[in-house]
Design a protein around this nucleic acid. Sequence first.
DNA 1: CACTATGGCGACCGATCGTTCGTAATCTAT
DNA 2: ATAGATTACGAACGATCGGTCGCCATAGTG
Lengths: 222, 222
Amino acid sequence: MSPRKSVAESRSTRQRILDLGLATASAEGLEGLTIGRLAAELGMSKAGVIGHFGTKESLQLAVVEAAAELFVREVPEHARGVPRGLPYLRAACEAWISFLERELLPGGCFFTAAAAEFDGRDGPVRDAVVRMSAFWQRELRVNIWRAVSLDELPADTDIDQLLYEIVAIMLALNHFLQLHGDRQAPARARRALERLLCRRVSEFPGRSTARGTTPGTPAPAE
Amino acid sequence: MSPRKSVAESRSTRQRILDLGLATASAEGLEGLTIGRLAAELGMSKAGVIGHFGTKESLQLAVVEAAAELFVREVPEHARGVPRGLPYLRAACEAWISFLERELLPGGCFFTAAAAEFDGRDGPVRDAVVRMSAFWQRELRVNIWRAVSLDELPADTDIDQLLYEIVAIMLALNHFLQLHGDRQAPARARRALERLLCRRVSEFPGRSTARGTTPGTPAPAE
DNA sequence: CACTATGGCGACCGATCGTTCGTAATCTAT
DNA sequence: ATAGATTACGAACGATCGGTCGCCATAGTG
């Protein structure tokens, strides 16, 4: 037990940086994340912080990766073992709602914020955010498709339309929670989802999707 | 016709700053808006730019105001004369979708981006964004209420729930357009809205709102 | 023991941030 | 014509940005 913190804590230090960085970035944005502030709040020097990553962009990418790990740990893992298709959809969405409800990150969903922040830029950070967003939507999409083919959802379900509406509900949950502090928002999200995912008779008459999406290849809409 | 630009163009100059500032802020964020960049792209000095506003925060507030004017000009004004209630709801939402579809701003909806950027901060800029968001939602809410009382929507409609879902569709439209460049997103938004606003038989069975919203006072959910 | 690798620090760099100041040029009003 | 506002400029301010450098302390390895 050394009086000063051991050097062997390096892994721990890196993780501490990422933990604080993720929390900060979720609230202030990835660009608002500053080496100096990070160092000050961690009680260390700027050089000590940046030394672990080399570049601010690398740090941002590491934060995105940390956010992805947290997301995977909180959402898909919580639905582990749930049968694919409609039950999985319900479980995953509920896990995401619960994740936001518990306020694990001060700024709400990191990827929702990062998507809005980087949607008008270029570069590897934007690519990483888009990749994660696409991954999650692919996950939803393939399970919607499965639910349809298992007859858990109506056969005439427009997969991409349903995907759009599910994502919409999630974006709105983050919006109402973060901007307006609306504590009833999770209940509204659950209700809206329930209405989308209950086996309803049909959509409204008329209007089918322009081009039917090939059910065999539920690729991300990118 | 003076060879150099006349000083009397000051109003025009201020407007030019705001126009460029609004376009930039919609894509890069209000915080990414920089006096120096703004000055360089306008071919003038930093002092010349900031002189019109005094402070960066004042400039940000002026940009928010300019965004609000653009929004009002594009959305509520486009629904002028349309009967309150369901027709107004349809017209206003369509105006908003069309506004995004025409890409008047390079970064999509300014307020959607600003809401995500400032939802974790304090200060007058955040307040201004929240105020505008609340105004728009109040506008929607009062017309939902009107539509219900005119029997254009089912009597058991949960007003705040419907408001939540409408806002969700709009947030998602901006998301899919900006992050994924999904050109089918406007069609999906229209379809989702149409399904929400068509006089459907009922919600799904069970589950009514915890506390019935007093129909006489459609206050914003803040 | 010596040697190397690593983590972290302090000092410092050029660039840019927002902001202030004094001043030249132009418009408006007397 | 003269006086006072505007309007914009150039220069400079301190602060902070991301990033580099050399140094030192410790841990692991022989």
